[in-house]
Design a binder for these strands. Sequence first.
DNA 1: AATTATGCTTACGTTTTTGTATGTACTTAC
DNA 2: GTAAGTACATACAAAAACGTAAGCATAATT
Lengths: 137, 137
Amino acid sequence: MPSLSETIQSGGLKGNLLATQCPSRQILKDVTSRWGVLVLIALQTGTLRFAELRRTVGGVSDRMLSQTLQTLEKDGFVSRFVYDVVPPHVEYSLTPMGREVTELVRALADWIEEATPGIMSKTAPAQTVEAAVTTSG
Amino acid sequence: MPSLSETIQSGGLKGNLLATQCPSRQILKDVTSRWGVLVLIALQTGTLRFAELRRTVGGVSDRMLSQTLQTLEKDGFVSRFVYDVVPPHVEYSLTPMGREVTELVRALADWIEEATPGIMSKTAPAQTVEAAVTTSG
DNA sequence: AATTATGCTTACGTTTTTGTATGTACTTAC
DNA sequence: GTAAGTACATACAAAAACGTAAGCATAATT
């Protein structure tokens, strides 16, 4: 049974995100990046072309969409299928692994979408609680 | 039954993250921020003081930890309890709502921690598939 | 008496991220 | 003939995130 210290860098089986140089942090970053989350969610409904993705994910620029897709592809979450025709035709879809993460990402996204109204309605009240504990002075 | 177009900005019940100016994006950002994820996970095991958090979350600086905690507090995910003593004593813990999101964040984190070794082992193979479709020329 | 610890804040500078504009090769629609 | 659409890359600049160092009030420790 692997202990907490048996992380990837020490030859163990899984990562420990709380450890400074754990490689998992990079993957986490890729998945939870600003556009990464949205692209994954957009692709959950099915295959989409570049321009379709750009229209689906509100606000992405060509540059960021392209960059995000490349990152997700190199991590193995997205697969790219290019038809050798002109004008260019490229299709993006989730890999089996991509579908797995996206389910979890989707769950988080759903929760947030539902919780947001409630969160936004309380204009940041002072949640801090001050204890009545005082020193003798 | 609300349709997709009935987002927050149009007076509906829930957000639509794919929409450009959906408020949910900010909450998503707060939760999935570099240190936000790690702080939530660290607090899942229980109440922690500032310095304890700093030691638990590998690599955080005072500045970022403080900033992250403030954001999570204003969103209502973390509660702050300060003892009025000197030297200062402040305890951080998850709110009921914080515990909810953290479960989802934790699920994602767990998945990633386990998948990372496999992802890292394939030094970014060219996943792209090229079709044999060609124009007549 | 000097050091360490606490929970921050502020100033400063660097790094990273993101956006904008432009170009490409070619086709279809007008 | 002109405009629009396709899937990007590239250069440049603005914006956001982040790290480092220093400071503060006070108590316990050495």
